[in-house]
């Protein structure tokens, strides 16, 4: 019998990165459970969970429930109520996603290089499924200057590379002004 040790999806990528008024750092590992209500079960599920997020919503109950797709939410954190499997398909996604937080006065300017959406228009907090360049992206807007950016674990390197490039150019433009 062996004991396995865990590794970080951003290992070797030299986070945090700081360029100008933007900073990128990894989000510490957290339990993520994907919850997809079965047809007709959304209400029952919502009462068991204390709510279920509509598209784009982030609900803070005892856990953080983040809408992530068609009839699907991620529950961030431990302590999921028992018996949810009667109402929903559950799958562990704690290891499937790599999350990084981009924060700072230029965070929106950096994302404007990579995400084809007007992020100014989003509520705080809220979630969006979109693309970051060619990468699949789950974006959670935490504030006007802080965004959690999640992509598939295998693409953590590309995520940080794309953001690094955009951050450098935004910072260089600032330096010109």
């Amino acid at each position: 019998m062996i004991e396995l040790s865990a590794s970080d999806p951003f290992a070797g990528l030299h986070l945090p990165l700081v360029h100008g008024a933007a900073r990128l750092d990894s989000v510490p590992p957290v339990r993520i459970t994907a919850i997809a209500p079965l047809p007709g079960q959304t209400e029952a599920l919502a009462s068991a969970l204390g709510g279920f997020p509509a598209p784009g919503e982030v609900l803070d109950t005892t856990l953080r429930l983040v809408w992530v797709g068609r009839g699907q939410a991620f529950a961030f954190g431990e302590g999921l109520p028992e018996g949810l499997e009667r109402h929903a398909a559950l799958s562990d996604q704690s290891d499937g996603w790599a999350g990084a937080q981009l924060e700072g006065a230029d965070a929106q300017a950096v994302l404007a290089r990579l995400v084809a959406m007007d992020l100014r228009a989003l509520a705080v907090p809220s979630s969006v499924r979109t693309l970051l360049g060619h990468l699949p992206l789950l974006l959670v807007k935490q504030s006007e200057t802080a965004f959690d950016l999640w992509t598939y674990r295998s693409m953590a390197g590309s995520l940080s590379h794309e953001l690094d490039r955009a951050m450098r150019m935004v910072a260089a433009r600032r330096a010109l002004a």
């Binding site: 997809a36 079965l38 398909a89 799958s91 562990d92 996604q93 290891d95 499937g96 674990r153």
Partner: peptide, 9 residues
């Protein structure tokens, strides 16, 4: 039924 990709997990 529901579908979920768990490739990366």
């Amino acid at each position: 039924l529901r579908l979920a990709s768990v490739t990366e997990n």
